[in-house]
Design a binder for these strands. Structure first.
Lengths: 337, 337
DNA sequence: CTGAAAGCGCTTACAG
DNA sequence: CTGAAAGCGCTTACAG
């Protein structure tokens, strides 16, 4: 039933080592023997046992992709499937498999990562999140595991290569865009700033406002839950003067703000404008379609994977981080005033 | 640097086989030697090499999760991350890893599955899709790979165990619910019926309409692209009499319909009602929040994983399929008339 | 209760 | 250009 390299060798009347070399398409094997061996492999239905190969080559040809959700709801954020697709498409093209860990709990993540690193199950790790004081990062650095971060490292920033957007600039640009449209009273709805991305975005917002000599007093930090959105919206619409535009930092946040606004009988963008980040399909099909910053999640994922594979191939190469540019996509949720 | 079972054995003055038995917590090893060996493992920082173990035990302790997207946009459907989470949570609890394949192309999927099966990289496969004439399913059956399907098999239904909702009943119930609310003129927006789920839902709809002696002439098949949504909506609103409610079969479809309706200045649910399926966070935060059928994706995923692991543990056990019940969740997108 | 030995299915110096 | 041998790091009958 199970056919191994020995069976092939026997039937083709060569040594197992020769069969192995044929599989690897070793240049010094004659075409003749290659053909002969390959024919036998076909006949016997031989397929190499990858486990055995991994054991001897000491390489797992698989990459661990670690994702942490701060909240249960983050699971449906369209950023992740798109980034993950970029990662797995690239890894597949390089003949790597991906094994993924996704959890809310820091401890679960730590355990899983420890297990896969010590068990030699992965050649490298992609970290899809970045926040302060993360034991997993510490562990990976100490064990010299090749890693790359999609996002911006808070610690060990000299040792971790990363791929990211320039989030300060992205938000700076977006704010300038709003100002150019005539908006002066802008409300900013961010998120928990223990994540680097949110710190950066907030900073970009403040920079642009300061430069334009505008006040930035309406800064909120939403959590994913919907009632918090309603609460924020209710606060905002009672402000006098009322902000003319809401900046949200992802599509899920934008959607819940819109819901809350509709509930208060406000229409978008006639009564109030709203903009967001990501530009997944969700932005296109929302009502109305969202003006948004395209952060190119697929591209981010792809570059991240590429960068890690490069690290594995050329461990001595110069470290360098990659910034994927962002672009503003105009749709119908934001009007000129 | 690298510490193996031999190093531990030497330092603990026992045989490697004893160390191995300590790792496995073999009952016949005295507590004394266990303690001694474990102490040395700690001191040396020993961690078992999982690759080696897998090779000798002929088990990979990993499950392949295969997903096929009919369209690029399907990638952000919130059904999948929730189902996947259910799967990976369960697998982790049983000490299995998951390795995933996600692609649009049938050929890519087939190749990847072939590679992981032949390479002994997986102990079993979870199929997250079901449609006609799928070479991957054929391959898995022929190679006697343990599989389970989340969805309903079209072929080999005697050989494939599956976990599913009763989609006929789910849609039948929903249609009855709408009829009870006073809706008589109902438009149904389904999808490509080469997927089993869509056939079943459509059938449930027709059954309920027939039973109530209502006509069901407004049946559309949307694709994921937004312009098709606008087209369908434009057709529907010109009908005379105009349908009072739209049935959509997932949240993405619902969102794009709502967008298209808003563009034509119709308000939901005052001018027209809309209902959907899934009940992820998206339904809650949409504007207005969607009345929807909860198909319990997390539970579906969990049961699927559980069922596969059971198959692996007890290969001789009776096959049985699992149906996860659905529930209607009332929100604000559908009114009584 | 523990050890010596064989073996899982490959790859890769080392010879020739 | 190809083969014989050793070895990757474990587990598991088989002895004792």
């Amino acid at each position: 039933m199970k056919v191994t390299i020995k069976d092939v060798a026997r039937k083709a009347k060569v040594a197992p080592s020769t069969v192995s070399r044929v599989i690897a398409d070793h240049p010094k094997i004659t075409q003749e023997t290659k053909d002969k061996v390959r024919k036998v492999m076909k006949e016997l239905g031989y397929h190499p046992n990858l486990l055995a190969r991994k054991l001897v080559t000491q390489s797992s040809q698989t990459i661990g992709v670690i994702r942490r959700m701060v909240s249960e709801e983050m699971i449906i954020d369209p950023f992740f499937p798109e980034a993950l697709q970029g990662i797995s498409d690239y890894l597949r093209s390089e003949n790597y498999s991906t094994i993924s860990v996704n959890a809310v709990s820091k401890d679960v993540i730590f355990e899983e990562v420890e297990k896969m690193v010590h068990g030699k199950n992965v050649d490298g790790i992609i970290l899809l999140y970045s926040h302060e004081d993360d034991p997993t990062v510490k562990f990976l650095i100490e064990n010299k595991v090749p890693i790359i971060m999609l996002g911006k490292p808070t610690e060990y920033s000299d040792e971790i290569m990363y791929v990211n957007n320039d989030n300060v600039k992205a938000m700076y640009d977006m704010t300038q865009y709003l100002i150019a449209l005539g908006h002066k009273n802008i409300a900013y709805i961010g998120r928990d700033s223990s994540f680097e991305v949110h710190k950066d975005r907030e900073q970009g917002f403040k920079m642009a406002m300061m430069e334009a000599n505008l006040e930035f007093k309406h800064i909120y930090h939403s959590v994913y839950a919907t009632n918090s959105a309603q609460q924020i919206v209710d606060e905002i619409i009672q402000l006098n003067p009322r902000p003319t535009v809401l900046i949200t930092i992802d599509e899920l946040s934008a959607m819940s703000m819109m819901s809350a606004l509709y509930k208060r009988k406000l229409s978008i963008p006639d009564d109030i404008s709203i903009i967001s980040f990501n530009n997944s399909l969700l932005s296109k099909i929302s009502s109305p379609p969202l003006t948004t910053v395209d952060i190119h999640p697929y591209q981010l994922g792809l570059e991240t994977a590429k960068s890690l594979i490069n690290q594995l191939k050329y461990p001595e190469a110069m470290r360098h981080n990659i910034l994927v540019p962002t672009t503003i996509v105009e749709r119908e949720s934001c009007k000129k005033i």
